[in-house]
Design a binder for these strands. Structure first.
Length: 469
RNA sequence: GAGGCCAUCGUCUAGCGGUCCAGGACCUCGGACUUUCACUCCGAGAACACGAGUUCAAAUCUCGUUGGCCUCACCA
């Protein structure tokens, strides 16, 4: 049997980090088993679903590389099919019309709660004849759920979970206006799409029992379920906007994370393979099995994600990184886009730059000095390094460096060391002020590397600004 | 309130009855390297929620307690 998994978000907002992990696990499991990964947009909530959200979800998934093997299914478009199934169930005596009003339902729940019973529909219309129906009420359709015995789900993550059927009620599958509810839509779509493994958040665990009753009523095979624990915020509470429940686009655009780092982090959040931490996508596909996902909820930790991002940043291709930060730098230096020459400089300096950054944001911040003409601002420490530089240092540097014929790292290195000796200073006393005038900062890639990447004329231009000092 | 799920360092996890006075990573703190910062390396800190039981032997199995989470809509 070929495995078919799916990711089924409702387009009521961006793709959040928990959804991204669910998608990743579904994708990985499909790849691991040589199966298929499908996408279904659950847009049956017409009030809250938006085309923008659909776009945001596709965008996020594409960024993470979690692409579906077939065209996505849009649930709302299948509403007639869903209703058809509901009517089939009525015909088969496995579902029935219910004419209860909202008020009656509300009373039912309050009474149940007061008596310490589960808050469920009491089956008022389960066996009542339609002739008793009140006039003018558009009935809903309820599934005749089993009332005795236990229902068992063999969950791939949670193990065997058992619930007594008397805890479950005859839930609504078709609304008064004839539209399907989520419970009906999911089951019909998962069945029609041939989904073999339903991997989703464990907030759906109790829904699985309701859905099982529907599969059984239709005589359909129940898919294998795997309910993965939810992700919590750093404080252990449910993930909210203040924590990580941002769209993945925020992780990309505002925080500067790399997709491979996010995937690796998400993979390790709830799953492990021995002592492995840095796991390539191919390795993940080979190792990942849904059965190995942990049962406990995990907290989201930005520090670890950031560290991981640093690892991937250092491994990343220089040209790719230069392209990634190009728009950020352009914005920073106030141009529409940086030119080819500037891009070249960034690529040239990237090996020294990427070692010092953990995110693309940091990388852009620390790279901008390379592409400006002169240094546009000096931080406090740089300013004080310049102020306390040995007398005549900059004039001396300008003179000596200008005289250099071959502008190589070896030569500028020797030249600067010479000057330090000549002025009877330690190298640091010369290198630090030099760094300050060249970069505007007290920290940067190796100073000789900076001089080479900057080039002779730009280096001298920056030094000469202070040679009167 | 009713049902369900969960529980190893601050965090993510390894561990699937003996090899664990519990391993790795992040984190924090020392140190080495060094022209700064970073990288890298070395070292330190830090956990089996609690209580019973099963067993020659329990982080690993059972039960209870406590704590956390999820669900209980004509939302998905």
């Amino acid at each position: 049997m070929t495995v078919v998994t799916r990711f089924a978000p409702s387009p009521t907002g961006f793709l959040h980090i928990g959804g991204a992990r669910t998608a990743l696990y579904n994708w990985l499991y499909a790849k691991h088993t040589g199966g298929k990964f499908l996408l279904r947009i659950e847009d049956t909530d017409r009030e809250r679903s938006t085309p923008e959200a659909v776009e945001a979800i596709f965008d996020g998934l594409n960024w993470l590389g979690l692409t579906a093997d077939e065209e996505p299914t849009f649930q709302f478009a299948r509403r007639d099919r869903h209703a058809e199934v509901a009517h089939e169930l009525i015909k088969a005596g496995k579902a029935y019309y219910c004419y209860c009003s909202q008020e009656e339902l509300q009373e039912m729940r309050e009474k149940a709660r007061a008596e310490g019973r589960p808050m469920k529909y009491d089956g008022t219309w389960r066996d009542r004849d339609a002739s008793e129906a009140p006039a003018g009420v558009k009935p809903v359709v309820r599934l005749k759920a089993p009332q005795e015995g236990d229902a068992v789900i063999s969950d791939q993550v949670q193990g065997d979970v058992r619930v007594a059927n008397d805890q479950l009620d005859d839930y609504v599958i078709l609304r008064g206006d004839g539209t399907p509810t989520y419970m009906l839509s999911v089951v019909v779509d998962d069945h029609d799409m041939g989904i073999t493994h339903v991997i989703r958040g464990d907030d759906h665990l109790t829904n699985a029992f309701r859905q099982k009753a529907l599969y059984d009523a239709m005589g359909w095979d129940v898919p294998t379920f795997a309910h993965i624990p939810l992700i919590h915020g750093p404080d252990g509470a449910k993930l909210s906007k203040r924590h990580g429940a941002l769209g993945v686009d925020a992780y990309r655009d505002e925080m500067g994370f790399l997709p491979e780092a996010v995937n690796n982090y998400l993979l390790r959040l709830g799953w492990g393979h021995g002592d492995e931490e840095i796991i390539s996508q191919d390795q993940a596909i080979e190792w990942f099995d849904i059965k190995d996902v942990g049962k406990g909820a995990a907290r989201f930790d930005f520090a670890k994600l950031t560290n991981l991002n640093g690892v991937y940043l250092r491994q990343a291709d220089d040209t790719r990184l230069a392209n990634d930060i190009a728009p950020l730098i352009a914005k920073q230096i106030g141009v529409d886009a940086i030119d080819a020459a500037q891009k070249e400089i960034l690529i040239k300096g990237m090996s020294g730059l990427k070692e010092r950054a953990k995110t693309l944001i940091e990388l852009a911040d620390s790279s901008a000095f390379y592409v400006t003409d002169g240094v546009t601002s000096f931080n406090e420490k740089a300013q004080s390094l310049i102020d306390s530089a040995p007398e005549g240092l900059f004039a001396e540097l300008a003179k000596e460096l200008d005289a250099l014929e071959n502008w190589t790292e070896e030569n500028v290195d020797a030249s600067v060391r010479n000057i330090a000796e000549k002025l009877d200073q330690k190298l640091g006393k010369v290198a630090q002020p030099l760094r300050a005038v060249l970069t505007g900062s007290n920290s940067s890639p190796g100073i000789f590397e900076v001089m080479i990447v900057l080039g002779k004329s730009q280096t001298l231009k920056r030094i000469r600004k202070f040679d009167a000092q």
